[in-house]
Design a protein around this nucleic acid. Structure first.
Length: 930
RNA sequence: AGGCCUGUGGCGGAAUUGGCAGACGCAGCGGACUUAAAAUCCGCAGAGUUCACCCUCAUCCGGGUUCAAGUCCCGGCGGGCCUACCA
């Protein structure tokens, strides 16, 4: 009965029908295609805008409602910018190589090429079902040979380049080779002139300067994952992914010399419009510190060099510590057989301890004396040298001078082993030095003089300068800037990644594959499982036919190697980050088969400052965003791109969380094990009360929501609108299924405003209501303003207010009464369309408009409609609101004051007292002080 | 341990950045329509107080600046994120 009365209602079925219809049409019409310069239909007079979402990694589980949050935001902005006359590039693709896909394949026994493709298909289906205005003609995946061909090409560009410190940019390594030959430069450790060097020696030298180089490094080896990991992928001594233990071991690996770019990566954080927190995290990761290298003489050994940020405390250095891996340790054992066993024992224990264990013991310092002394260059006194694992080989020089009086770690160590503590800095505020804690703050140097130098009385900064000057004059120290950032380990012992375009001959020398021979295709391997072992064994090693080949077959330039030469391919693969380092460039020109991106397309879409808006999660604040910046800067130096930075403006959407329930003991309960009892919640099994808390969505808590289920129940427009109305884009917000009904009802009201649910006929007002017309102008104005601010929640609130104001009461039978006129409806639909494009298309068509609402112009606002003739102003007496007065909008402060003081309510509230002072803020408020 | 962010009704959140706290939505309550319900429409709705009006109190707690503080400053408490022996 009821259904018959309103057969044209906007319900889930109708929403879905409309959405599928328009999604198919957009795709068929190429509605969201962006034309490149030179393409038919390209309009050079329009400004460009490049809006990018972070590359999704398609997992087998499909999308959850967190994914579309950022995508909906960028979609709204895209549609808005298009209506504003911009050429908008808004692409989507897939980051599909890497560990998770491979792990999933190993678990299921289905080849990653298969599982990845089906995951991509599923992601694409889900995204298209939400009606996002991506230019799907630009879609690609990192696993496409047409794409990774260029990933390999960029790697080769780095391989063929070195960092010219004098010019602070990357240059072709051929230039350096030519210089070496011209000058017959002595290279390497033994000083052999270039002309006398063997090819292997020359290559060895060049490998010390290449941007993509091979070298022996202490790496993070994760036996459970069967691969090594980058520093960025290791958290608390465990793998970031899967949380498996990670061990340190030396290995010959491909690296990127990202450290050459440390200063520029730091400096250029100033020219990007990024969240402060993200810039801070990158700056801290790069970790610049200023200080000095200081040499301490060790009898027999030579100089022990340390790095310190506090050269001003050199007089307080009472002992030294080297890392267990430091060469001095081995030397000490060789020269002091008596204690060699003890030292060796300590070093072995320290080395076998994973970083995780070191972490667990945290402040409990361990160490053992080396039985050596060094001479403190400032005091001339001998000080003992210890080995301890609180000093890290990878930072600085792997050795420190210990100043226990002014360094917490050294203080803890000195206390533990009863080493002397010598104060050399006095607190600036005169606080006396206490022997139970280190005083690390800057202060005034004291007890710091020898017969040539006195720092006494100098504040820390100038004391440090004076000390460095003195050390430099004595030739035993030098000013130095040190970075925490280390070179980027770029090899993985896994199958599912880009192969390196490089081969080795029998002597172990490496040769690049020539660019024309790219891509080096990843061979199809039936057994791709990682080998769990103590030693890294790349799975590609099993493809013996592929690995063992000839220089000619591998595509090595004949000028480098005779085509018949037997060579072995590199069996490591690139890490998952490789593909995402440059995908934003490929989107500019995704089908180019002769260049990674045409100069013209790159120049047009990247413009002066790169991607205009980049939206993605803050979890990539360091890893992806640092790597991509590094690649971009290399490409910039090599003349391949035109901007210094890839992403001009970055925005992190917040996480969508969910509810879970917590027992009295703090443990969590799955949502399906709880039910609501008059306003509270109890655990179904035992009736015990539980409290609702906010938690991450997880399978175990049964609180994961997928877009598919929401779309089925309400439609895509409702899902989009709900996610945008939840709160500020940047905040983390809990999903509350109950709230979705609110925005769904809003869309139903929009529909009902335009359509008679009983007949399906248009409902349009005869004449515009003046108040509604004013409100419409204000709404459109506010929505535009809010979209530019990415404040979608408040934009939606104002659209709701407008619809509520325009909604005709049920009792109003005549369709031509109330509601919106055709012209008003037209403008309203255009303003709503970026948020809920499908329903707007359907109603737009009902209005008789021929083309799509998405190609219409953003409605024009009459600024005269934004101001009223008179406004109500609150009047405070003594800071409390006691009255409201109506004043002309144009009234100045004096006129307002006059109106206020003559107002009956005000007079009454003042109770005969006289105004001592009247503060008038036009258009805001009035405060009368009596 | 340090750094950054954050704290507003029963709930998600607004507040033009110092100017009427609680927009909008959820949940709730009342009314109209209906035989009834659903749906819809119209209202109410921070707390206190003898309907209402008024008044008082109210943006985690305590101080401060100001004619005026959710907003700025100082101190404390709670929540979140990041870093964590980096010399």
């Amino acid at each position: 009965m009821a259904a018959n009365e309103t057969p044209y209602r906007y319900d889930a079925a109708r929403a879905c029908e409309i959405e599928l219809h328009w999604q198919a049409r957009w795709l068929a019409d190429g509605a969201n295609r962006a034309a490149n310069p030179g393409d038919p239909g390209f309009d050079a007079s329009r400004p460009k805008y490049y809006i990018l979402d972070m590359f999704p990694y398609p997992s087998g589980a499909g999308l959850h409602v967190g994914h579309p949050e950022g995508y909906t935001a960028t979609d709204i902005l895209t549609r808005y910018k298009v209506m504003r006359g911009f050429n908008v590039l808004h692409p989507m693709g897939w980051d599909a190589f890497g560990l998770p896909a491979e792990q999933y394949a190993v678990q299921t026994g289905v080849h990653p090429a298969v599982t990845t493709r089906s995951a991509i298909d599923n992601f694409r289906r889900q995204l298209q079902r939400l009606g996002f205005a991506y230019d799907w003609s630009r879609e690609f995946g990192t696993i496409d040979p047409d794409y990774y061909r260029w990933t390999q090409w960029i790697w080769l560009r780095a391989y063929h380049s070195y960092y010219d410190e004098s010019r602070a940019c990357a240059r072709p390594i051929a230039e350096l080779e030519a210089q070496c030959a011209d000058e017959d430069r002595a290279t390497g450790t033994d000083g052999t002139p270039w002309s006398k060097c063997t090819p292997a020696q020359r290559q060895g030298y060049l490998d010390t300067v290449r941007l993509a180089y091979i070298g022996v490094q202490t790496v993070n080896w994760c036996p459970a994952l069967g691969t090594v990991l980058a520093n960025e992928e290791v958290v608390d001594g465990r793998s970031e992914r899967g949380s498996h233990p990670v061990f340190r071991m030396p290995l010959r690996q491909w690296m990127f010399r990202i450290t050459a770019y440390a200063q520029r990566l730091l400096d250029d954080l100033a020219i990007v419009e990024w969240p402060e927190s993200t810039r801070t995290m990158q700056a801290e990761w790069i970790g610049r510190s200023e200080g000095a290298d200081v040499q301490f003489a060790v009898a027999g050994f030579g100089a022990l060099t340390i790095f310190t940020t506090r050269p001003d405390t050199l007089f307080g250095a009472t002992y030294m510590v080297v890392a267990p891996e430091h060469p001095l340790v081995e030397w000490a054992c060789a020269h002091n057989p008596a204690s060699a066993a003890d030292i060796g024992g300590y070093v072995t224990r320290a080395r076998n301890r994973s970083d995780l264990d070191r972490q667990a013991e945290s402040r409990d310092k361990t160490g053992i004396p080396l039985g050596l002394t060094a001479t403190n260059p400032a005091t001339g006194l001998p000080i003992p040298i210890w080995v301890a694992d609180y000093v890290l080989m990878a930072y600085g020089t792997g050795a420190i001078m210990a100043v226990p009086a002014h360094d917490e770690r050294d203080f803890a160590f000195a206390t533990r082993f009863s080493l002397p503590i010598r104060q050399v800095v006095a607190a600036a505020d005169g606080t006396a030095f206490s022997a139970d804690a280190a005083a690390c703050e800057a202060g005034i140097a004291c007890n710091s003089s020898n017969h040539e130098l006195s720092l006494n009385g100098l504040p820390t900064a100038s004391a440090a300068r004076a000390m460095i000057d003195w050390l430099q004059s004595k030739g035993c120290g030098v000013r130095r800037i040190n970075f925490r950032l280390r070179d980027w380990l770029f090899s993985r012992q896994r199958y599912w990644g880009e192969p390196f375009p490089v081969v080795f001959d029998e002597s172990g020398m490496h040769y690049p594959v020539s660019p024309e021979a790219l891509p080096v295709q990843l061979p199809t391997l039936a057994d791709y499982a990682p080998v769990q072992s103590d030693q890294p064994l790349p799975p590609l090693g099993k493809a013996t036919q592929w690995v063992q080949t000839t220089a000619g077959a591998a595509g090595v330039d004949v000028r480098l190697l005779d085509p018949q030469t037997p060579v072995r391919r590199e069996t490591n693969t690139m890490p998952g980050w490789a593909g995402s380092c440059w995908y934003y460039l490929r989107y500019c020109d995704p089908r180019n088969s002769t260049r990674f991106v045409s100069k013209e397309a790159e120049h047009y879409w990247m413009g002066d400052r790169g991607v205009d808006l980049y939206v993605g999660g803050s979890e990539h604040a360091v890893l992806h965003l640092l790597y991509a910046r590094f690649w971009h800067k290399m490409l910039f130096d090599l003349g391949e791109v035109t901007t210094r930075e890839p992403f001009a403006k970055l925005y992190h959407q917040g996480m969508i969380t969910s509810f879970a329930f917590e027992r009295a003991d703090g443990t969590l309960v799955a949502t399906d094990a709880v039910h609501e009892v008059n306003g509270g919640w109890v655990e179904t099994a035992n009736g015990a009360p539980v409290t609702r808390v906010i938690a991450k969505m997880s399978k175990s808590l049964k609180n994961v929501v997928t877009p598919d289920e929401v779309v089925a129940e309400y439609g895509a427009d409702t899902l989009r609108l709900y996610e945008m109305s939840m709160g500020p884009l940047a905040d983390s917000k809990p999903w509350n299924t109950r709230d979705i009904a609110g925005v769904f009802r809003f869309l139903q009201r929009v529909w009902r405003l335009a359509i008679d649910e009983r007949t399906g006929e248009l409902l349009l007002a005869r004449a515009p209501d003046a108040a509604v017309e004013r409100l419409l102008h204000r709404t459109i104005h506010k929505v535009a303003h809010d979209i530019e601010k990415l404040a979608f929640n408040t934009a939606i609130a104002s659209l709701i207010e407008l619809v509520n104001a325009a909604t005709r009461p049920t009792a109003m039978i005549d369709a031509a009464d109330g509601g919106l006129t055709r012209d008003q409806m037209n403008r309203f639909l255009r303003a709503l369309s970026p948020f809920a494009p499908h329903i707007c298309e359907a109603l737009w068509e009902k209005l008789g408009e021929a083309s799509s609402v998405t190609t219409s112009q953003w409605p024009v606002v009459d600024v005269a409609m934004l101001v009223d003739e008179s406004i109500e102003m609150p009047v405070q007496i003594q800071g409390k609101v006691r009255a409201r007065v109506q004043v002309p909008t144009a009234a100045d402060a004096a006129q307002i004051e006059a109106i206020v003081l003559s107002d009956a309510m005000v007079v009454q509230a003042m109770a005969g007292r006289t105004a001592k002072k009247v503060i008038v803020v036009p258009k805001r408020m009035v405060n009368v002080l009596v």
